[in-house]
Design a protein around this nucleic acid. Structure first.
Length: 534
RNA sequence: GGCUCCGUAGCCAAGUGGCUAAGGCAGCGGAUUGCAAAUCCGCCAUCGUGGGUUCAACUCCCACCGGAGCCUCCA
């Protein structure tokens, strides 16, 4: 059995618990994916990015992990939206699923093992509903099937709610329910709706049942980790939990994880504006009212048109957005906006510069050189033997980083250690005088590689620094042209500087800065980089 | 009304019952540079307010103020 010191905050118990898997060395985890009726927004990326990172860390820690993300492709919203657009529900679902997946790819989310669709899982869903009816937890009324919450004494344990406080969905279904908190397992179809054949007539599944059915098929009756946004705790996860536990007579999930929600910075700005106006008109008494009003605007929601994730990625790069999400704890509420993302980007640049510096000084490619093969498993780490303080500090920081990850996947704390690793490596370069040929001894270069491999190892856990940062227009030909031109310009400037014609050299440099290219003068010549700061 | 959660420097953000309260952005001082940039070194917080528990609290408890979420579809 894998021994580990991982602790996970469990929504079910509201405490951090030591991580114990059901089966030795294996982990099953399930994340509630999107309802694919509209383009994704950044809020939909929080879960995938953190779970992608969790999987990476668990694999790194020695577990074999199966990660499932479901796609809800049948639902009221899909039906309505497809009608609006005049296309079939399936066409809409296919298009929006593609959008979702391409966004995931941009953010480096590539650890998902299964992406089951609800419409591909009808047999299991129907079977699941049948089993619930047989066990007396569900009842049929007309063509609808409902879960009977009164039959489950533990109902409400996840969200800490009592059954009699339930409002229920209301609508015309309400009259067919035994109690307001009952929820639909199967909904009878209206004539013009997509539907499937079932023992209760043509219809479609309720929202919650698909997750219970699909997770059972792939991960079994009880599995280790189930996640989703905080907003899913009730009713979605509460209902899933109830269905599965009642059907199987055993717990559905050991650890329930919930990520905090995103808030748009633009909308927050609006709040301030409104308040300012309220104050200037002397309406102090109602100062709270506009705030309350505005809060509904700060929330990101697709219905309010907060899409445009693809554009956001284009503007900031996927890695920047990923890093931004990982900078804070996954359970906290995060305010995002261009300014926030730009700041995350500015801090990332320091890593890119270090990596560039490394490649220039060693001739080793950070990303795909065999010399940079790093530890994919925590236990295979071999500590570099050296008395060099900077490298020893990097080793110490690695431990600090890992113990932060052990503590409920504290990526926000861990990124702090990563910055310190970068600083240590720069210090090492300075102290060992690697910028000068004399300093580039076999030993120093070996230590340099060893240190950078640790940066790569830790970056890989977070899913960053896996490939060169995206630059605009990076096709091969234009890249070569660009390199040639820059070489020429740098030569012109260097000649001018040799002749102490600083007016000339500065004019070249300033001109380049104006178009977003930064020069770095070193001991052995000048290098350049694209200064992204958007 | 019920149930959660949060309030740490100009901004973002970790964290802890007692040792110097991480890190980033911005800023300032120094080294380096022809000048810059980059890099390195240094500076920059007593943890919303008021009580309480304790030998000791920013960390636990209570109250208050402020903010967010859920209770209806939402990652």
């Amino acid at each position: 059995m894998t021994t580990n010191s991982i602790r996970i905050y469990n929504t079910l118990t509201k405490t951090k618990e030591p991580f114990q898997t059901i089966e030795p060395d294996r982990v099953g985890m399930y994340l509630c994916g999107p309802t694919v009726y509209a383009e994704a927004h950044i809020g939909h990326m929080v879960g995938p990015v953190i779970f992608d990172t969790i999987k990476r860390y668990l694999v790194y820690s020695g577990f074999e992990v199966t990660w499932v993300v479901n796609i809800t492709d049948v639902d009221d919203k899909l039906i309505n939206k497809s009608r609006e657009k005049g296309i079939s529900m399936f066409q809409l679902a296919t298009a929006m699923t593609a959008d979702y997946l391409s966004n995931l790819q941009s953010l480096g989310v590539d650890q998902i093992d299964h992406l089951p669709r609800a419409t591909d899982s009808m047999d299991e869903i129907i079977l699941f509903v049948q089993e619930l009816i047989e066990r007396g937890f569900a009842y049929v009324n007309g063509g609808d099937v409902f879960f009977d919450v009164m039959k489950d004494p533990q109902y409400g344990q996840l969200s800490n709610r009592s059954v009699d406080s339930q409002q229920g969905e209301g609508g015309d279904a309400a009259s067919r329910k035994r109690s307001p908190g009952d929820f639909a397992l199967w909904k009878s179809a209206r004539p013009d709706e997509p539907s499937w054949k079932s023992p209760w007539g043509q219809g479609r599944p309720g929202w919650h049942i698909e997750c219970s059915a699909m997770s059972r098929r792939i991960l079994g009756k009880t599995f280790d980790i189930h996640g989703g946004g905080l907003d899913l705790v009730f009713p979605h996860h509460e209902n899933e939990l109830a269905q599965s536990r009642c059907c199987h007579g055993q717990p559905m999930v050991t650890y329930w994880l919930h990520n905090g929600l995103m808030q748009a910075a633009e909308a927050k700005g609006k709040v301030g504006g409104k308040n300012d106006r309220a104050e200037s008109t002397g309406a102090e008494v109602t100062a709270q009212q506009p705030t309350a009003q505005a809060t509904s605007e700060t929330k990101i929601s697709r219905s309010k048109g907060a899409g445009g994730l693809a554009k956001l990625i284009e503007r900031h790069t996927g890695e920047r957005i990923r890093f931004f999400l990982l900078r804070s704890h996954y359970r906290s509420t995060t305010i995002f906006g261009d300014e926030q993302l730009a700041e995350a980007g500015a801090s990332l640049e320091a890593f890119y510069r270090l990596i560039q510096r490394f490649e220039r000084l060693t001739g080793v490619s950070f990303y795909d050189d065999v010399a940079m093969a790093y530890n994919h498993k925590r236990k295979t780490f071999v500590e570099p033997t050296t008395s060099n303080e900077a490298i020893k500090e990097v080793v110490r920081l690695r431990e600090a980083f890992l113990s932060k990850m052990d503590d409920d996947f504290n990526t926000g704390g861990a990124t702090g250690d990563l910055f310190e690793v970068a600083r240590c490596m720069n210090r090492f370069i300075d102290e060992a005088k690697l910028e000068e040929a004399a300093g580039r001894s076999q030993e120093n270069l070996g230590l340099f590689v060893a240190g950078m491999k640790i940066l790569k190892e830790l970056g890989a856990i977070l899913g960053i620094f896996m490939k060169p940062p995206k630059q605009s227009g990076n096709n091969q030909d234009s890249q070569e042209l660009l390199d040639g031109l820059m070489k020429l310009l740098i030569q012109v400037r260097t000649d001018a500087r040799t002749k102490r014609d600083f007016a000339m050299s500065d004019s070249v440099r300033d001109g380049l800065i104006a178009i977003g290219v930064a020069l770095q003068d070193g001991k052995e010549g000048t290098t350049w980089s694209i200064a992204k700061s958007t």
